[in-house]
Design a protein around this nucleic acid. Structure first.
Lengths: 323, 323
DNA sequence: TCATCTTTCGATCAAATGATCGAACACCAC
DNA sequence: GTGGTGTTCGATCATTTGATCGAAAGATGA
């Protein structure tokens, strides 16, 4: 097939003139003595045969590749990956917050009334803090997670308060602990008029920005006294590796059913399958938890950092290989 | 200027999505939350800042780069460089011939009557031999160089004969040696009716395809007995490094005036400044001769090979540096 | 604080690109 | 030779891209 080699030569020539030489296809057609559609075909061939290699020389390039892989693999509407080379881990977290704030702004910018719900966690808090002030009194913001711990102390990281302050919008907070003392207590809470009203508002939300929690000794849920050590141990032995809005899930993203999880007061995750559920979380340690949420198919969007993204891609690819 | 870094980040993102991800600018605009012209500017910035590197993985790529450099440096209408990695030096020569034949075909393909002139040399001969047969009896072909040596033997490499055979066109040959025995003999030859008639036809030619000769012990002019050893020595001591149609020139491309050059019977080079004079020559050894022809500004087009092209570019760049 | 200057942004239009389709061509079997 | 068949080629149109220009926003200095 010598004919093919000649064609490839021509294709390489056309590709060089087009991509390196910056010529227009008409000029290339004149130079190579073929028609313009002919040049088109040569360029298509050159790309298809991998003669053309494009490289973007910037740290962001890796992030884009990771984001693309995750987006495609888990069918997300979008995925943002913040770069890891920002120096300190502090500035990395800030980078993630800025990226997430960017996403959040897209919704807030709208002038039509908007209902948005927020989860808890440091990432959510940092994200709303990274937002610049904008006047949107017509918007409504709902907290999806009870903002009091078992001991009655208020959650330090509730983003709804800050967000409502920055925009002048309405705020709706759940006056409940994340995990109730008993199933009956949970039922009672859910029957409260206020609780039901807030649930109704949350149901109208267009999107929800939530954190992703680990289930281990460093779990926020545990550290901030939302659950006891015994409850934590029960979750871990039940296979839980992460949580969304307090709902524990195993490595495959399936909800873990146990005595603790039956007392979670948060709105059910199934509710968000109709909405745009966006997770904000980064750091290598959060990787397994984020991956679980992705595998469960709960998320529509993800804002993370390079560490977590790399863990997710590597782990998922390895799992896929062995499958 | 932290603002600039953020912009560069965005630019890198846009570039990645566009060049690697294959997204359209509208999609990128939606993804990054900017207007379409904004994406345009980001992409322009990314290219300008050199974030985007394009590489064409094919031996031809080097040739294209060399061709471009030569074309721009010497203001040629075109320059083709045949690749050097074709294995044997024989197949390389053939590659050059095919490339040159391609150029020649562009003219021959035309159906309107055409007058074309040819020089002598192995390259020209190989080029017309590489041509495929085509019926063009309306065309006329003129030999620009006398086709008899001093001893009366006919030049073995006259392409006009083959070309006319392949196309069915008319042929015009100069019945003269390249270098006459004396100035008066040259004058006499030029006065011949036949000579003048052929000159007139050559003047009407649209393009001329000629070889480039070295001036040294391996010179075709000498090897084929067009000039004697004494004449060769005179030319060399006069600074001649190459010749076009028998006209010797120094390294700067200026015609060398000496007792030998005054007896050259070929049509004057100045005549071709109005036409498209195309040189066909390759090989590292021919480099200095080709470079001289280029520097003299005599050529409008060049078909060469990678060896000669590299020599030309390297030498010219070095000369430019020191200038 | 206001006027002005610079810079940036987005609407609009021209150019370039990619895709589709019918026609021509060559190849092959009959 | 002849008809079928598969492939390639070039005209045409929709989409995408690049460039220009006026308008708005922000910076600067009086």
């Amino acid at each position: 097939m010598d004919k093919f080699e000649v064609k490839l030569d021509q294709a390489a020539r056309a590709a060089w003139l087009s991509y390196v030489g910056g010529r227009t296809q008409d000029e290339i057609a004149a130079q190579l003595g073929v028609s313009r559609p002919g040049v088109q075909r040569l360029l298509a061939l050159a790309r298809q045969e991998g003669l053309v290699k494009v490289r973007v020389d910037h740290p962001i390039a890796n992030c884009m590749a990771l984001a693309e892989a995750i987006r495609d693999r888990f069918g997300l509407e979008f995925c943002d990956v913040a770069p890891a080379d920002a120096g300190t881990s502090d500035s990395e977290a800030r980078y993630l917050a800025v990226a997430a704030a960017e996403r959040l702004s897209r919704y807030l910018d709208r002038s039509e009334p908007l209902t948005l719900s927020l989860g808890t966690g440091r990432s959510v808090r940092a994200t709303v803090e990274a937002l610049s002030r904008i006047d949107r009194p017509q918007h409504r913001f709902v907290s999806l997670v009870g903002n009091v711990a078992r001991d009655g102390s208020a959650n330090r990281y509730d983003g709804v308060m800050i967000l409502a302050d920055k925009t002048g919008g309405e705020r709706f907070l759940l006056p409940a602990p994340v995990v109730a003392g008993s199933v009956s207590e949970k039922e009672a809470l859910r029957e409260q008029t206020l609780f039901r009203a807030i649930t109704e508002v949350a149901r109208q939300a267009e999107a929800a920005f939530v954190g992703v929690g680990r289930i281990d000794r460093q779990a926020t849920l545990f550290q901030d006294h939302f659950i006891s050590e015994a409850e934590l141990d029960e979750l871990i032995s039940g296979g839980a590796v992460g949580e969304l809005l307090g709902w524990p899930m195993n490595a495959q993203g399936e909800l873990v059913d146990c005595s603790t999880s039956r007392r979670v007061t948060s709105l059910p995750l199934e509710m968000f399958l109709e909405q745009t559920l966006v997770a904000l979380a980064g750091g290598r340690d959060k990787g397994p938890a984020i991956l679980a949420a992705l595998r469960g198919g709960w998320l529509k969007g993800l804002v993370t950092d390079e560490h977590a993204a790399r863990f997710i891609v590597d782990t998922e690819m390895a799992a896929r290989e062995s499958a």
